[in-house]
Design a protein around this nucleic acid. Sequence first.
DNA 1: GTTGACATTGACGTAACGTAATAGTTTAAT
DNA 2: ATTAAACTATTACGTTACGTCAATGTCAAC
Lengths: 257, 257
Amino acid sequence: MEYTINSLAKMSGISSRTLRHYDDIELLKPSRISSTKYRIYGQKEIDKLQQILFYKELGLGLSDIKKILDNSSFDAQEAMEKHLMELESKQKQIDQLILNVNKTIKSLKGEEEMSNKEKFEGFKKNMIEANEQKYGKEIREKFGNDVIEESNQKLAQMTQEEYQDIEKLAKELNLKLKDAVATGNPRGDLAQEVCELHRRWLTFYWPKDTYTKEAHQGLAEMYCQDERFKEYYEKIAPGTAEFLNEAIKIYCMKRSE
Amino acid sequence: MEYTINSLAKMSGISSRTLRHYDDIELLKPSRISSTKYRIYGQKEIDKLQQILFYKELGLGLSDIKKILDNSSFDAQEAMEKHLMELESKQKQIDQLILNVNKTIKSLKGEEEMSNKEKFEGFKKNMIEANEQKYGKEIREKFGNDVIEESNQKLAQMTQEEYQDIEKLAKELNLKLKDAVATGNPRGDLAQEVCELHRRWLTFYWPKDTYTKEAHQGLAEMYCQDERFKEYYEKIAPGTAEFLNEAIKIYCMKRSE
DNA sequence: GTTGACATTGACGTAACGTAATAGTTTAAT
DNA sequence: ATTAAACTATTACGTTACGTCAATGTCAAC
């Protein structure tokens, strides 16, 4: 029995284009060509096609299949073992990818630290916690969970340059804060300038348009109450947390006038 | 700080071609272009590249990465979750492939065993016949019938393990013979090495202490005259039987000096 | 004779670059 | 100041296994 290209294609569940391709690359030639240049396939070709499709389903490349089928001296078993090794290597790769993608998704959700963040060091971690812990609760109620996620994402995707800017800002803030504490006057220009810096610093981390003087005051309050944050500020100078709290209260009151 | 294409490439561990590609597809454009048309990258581009490479390591395609980074409205998390699903689907596929390939390898091994057995039986028959036909006459005259029978018995009782050793030797012989024929020089080192292998191979089949250079030459002669043997050798490459005959003549002459 | 189904040969597109080839530019050494 | 080495640019083909037109020829039926 003889078959035209489409009948063979339908028989075997592949496209005629595929058969033409196999002809082009000399993987499967028609048994003969009709006077009108039609490709005609016979039983031998059907058998060979079955073998081709068998190996194809195992994921072998067409060139390997060609070698196996054309060259009887070519060791099929060896080829399969090599192929198996490649597959196993791919398997490992994908397993690893899945692990990492899962991590990333979690991190995007804000559930876990990303390795990316590690380069942003511990302080940033603290800020995330601050977002979640204190600020998170309030904002969550006000704006829903999406905002928090956005905030964490903003941190996670923060570029180095941005981070450097923040670090610079934070350094300036800490320096001036120290000086301001030394003046002992939370109403003074220096202290109020520090508050302004602090506000700008906050807006780096907080979701867009979520800054309010109330939230700002709330955070300052928290600096005094949460040991972890208090400790950080007390390192600058004793009494800093309270001083900053006081100054921010004043700053926010002034701004609300 | 500004960087040329190669310095950035080295910094980030990718090729300059890759950076040009990213430029072409508008994934990462240089910050500016020098008067001499050189690409110049700045800090912002370094940061972006880091993000690109991060997503790339997770296996995302460049077009997806572009969408995530270009379009802040594009939901990265959603993209990652879709990507995760694709990866998991691939994982299943590969697991299945590995199963099937393993099955195939097993069955190929089974087949090989079968065909080995067949080959083994066939070969025994051939050798016994050959011993009888050509070599047998001479030996029979020289050593009497017992030796021949002994030899045939040796063949008949050969275990498969022994046969496999011989097969291995035969494989090496055939490979080197092919190369040797390609050199076209029966006097060459390779051809002479093949003769040595051939001698060792023979001693597996011939009765003890019956190897002589004359018998060796006689067998080589027979390879050219007996169709069955000739066919076997001609499969390796055309002209192999004659080549081997010639090489063995030379080999035996050398040894007799 | 016409129509509709089926055939043919190009040729471009896909993903993410690798690898030349050819030509202008910068830098370091002479 | 020259010159050679090192760098950069553009152009373009190759890779894998076909999908998808487009233009054109062929077969079977009405």
